[in-house]
């Protein structure tokens, strides 16, 4: 009997070893699924190129983003100025790269803030349910009822322009969305028996949320954050366009677009390039977010 048991154990161990060889880790699975998605790779490439461009801006251009040169105003693209120059004779390519830095930074900060606050509210609502859930959810409903950009405009108008204020203004609108996603995920995870098992071992609620629930919400959080960065970049451009986001002379895609609007009939590069960059970036983030969702949660597909 005992020998039989030992043999069986060995067989089980062997089987598990084989599984390991085939299964690899969760993240390798995700990567494999992601690599099959062509539009996802396209999105990833676009985003990576954008990030590289803005990261290595000082190496890619010889000009300063605020160096004015009156004789060089409104130059069309050439080998010296790949995107041409603006109304003050500043190199547009340089301004696009440095403008991207601001946009990305604000977008990432805004998304981070809304993800953190959203996670706190969402997990509390989802885990405790009842009155806590009712209060938080109704509050989120109210926030969802206000259009995101309108809310950001209102907050920016009160706080005044500036990168930090813009990040804050944009993050408030994002809280409701991320809180809702976390809430739904937590509610689903909460029903698993291992949560009850964790309670039966005497864990505190906070510990259960931190150790057993939140790590399971990472996938939807990554997906939502990716999409939200794209959305925030559009939001920043929108705010700057109406003069509430980043103030000139700090370059920003939206504000470049806004100035270029005055010359749209006579000089196209000042509107076309910023618009193209905004569009491409958001397109890239959306493709990437979609692909990540499919890769991280294969059940959502088909």
């Amino acid at each position: 009997m005992h020998g039989h048991l030992v043999k069986e154990r060995k067989e089980l161990d062997l089987r598990a070893l084989e599984n390991m060889a085939v299964k690899k880790t969760l993240w390798q699975d995700v990567l494999a699924r992601f690599l099959k998605n062509k539009s996802g790779i396209a999105g990833f490439v676009i985003v990576v190129i954008m990030i590289l461009l803005i990261l290595f801006a000082p190496l890619l251009t010889r000009f300063d983003y605020d160096a004015q040169s009156f004789p060089d105003r409104f130059l069309y693209p050439s080998s010296l100025h790949p995107f041409g120059t603006d109304n003050f004779g500043r190199d547009l390519f340089t301004r696009m790269l440095y403008g991207g830095r601001i946009s990305f930074m604000i977008a990432i900060i805004a998304t981070f803030i809304s993800a953190v606050i959203g996670t706190i509210f969402g997990s509390a609502a989802g885990y405790f349910g009842g009155v806590v859930d009712t209060i938080i959810s109704r509050f989120l409903d109210i926030m969802m009822a206000i259009p995101g950009l309108l809310l950001a405009i209102a907050i920016s108008a009160v706080l005044g322009p500036g990168p930090i204020n813009t990040a804050f203004a944009l993050s408030i609108g994002g809280i409701a969305m991320s809180a809702r996603i976390i809430r739904a995920t937590v509610m689903a995870i909460k029903t698993n028996e291992y949560i009850e098992a964790a309670k039966a071992t005497g864990s505190r609620n906070f510990r259960i949320i931190r150790k057993h629930i939140l790590p399971n919400t990472i996938a939807p959080l990554i997906v939502n954050s990716t999409m939200s960065i794209g959305g925030s970049i559009m939001g920043i451009a929108g705010l700057s366009f109406i003069g509430l986001g980043v103030k000139p002379p700090t370059p920003e895609w939206g504000s470049i677009l806004n100035v270029g609007r005055d010359y749209i009939r006579d000089f196209w590069p000042m509107t076309v390039f910023p618009a193209l960059f905004i569009m491409l970036t958001i397109f890239g983030f959306n493709l990437l977010g979609d692909a990540l969702r499919d890769a991280l949660d294969p059940r959502l597909k088909d």
Binding site: N192, E193, Y194, A198, N216
Partner: peptide
């Protein structure tokens, strides 16, 4: 099957 946390 469900009494263990899959990610720990």
């Amino acid at each position: 099957m469900s009494a263990l946390n899959p990610i720990l």
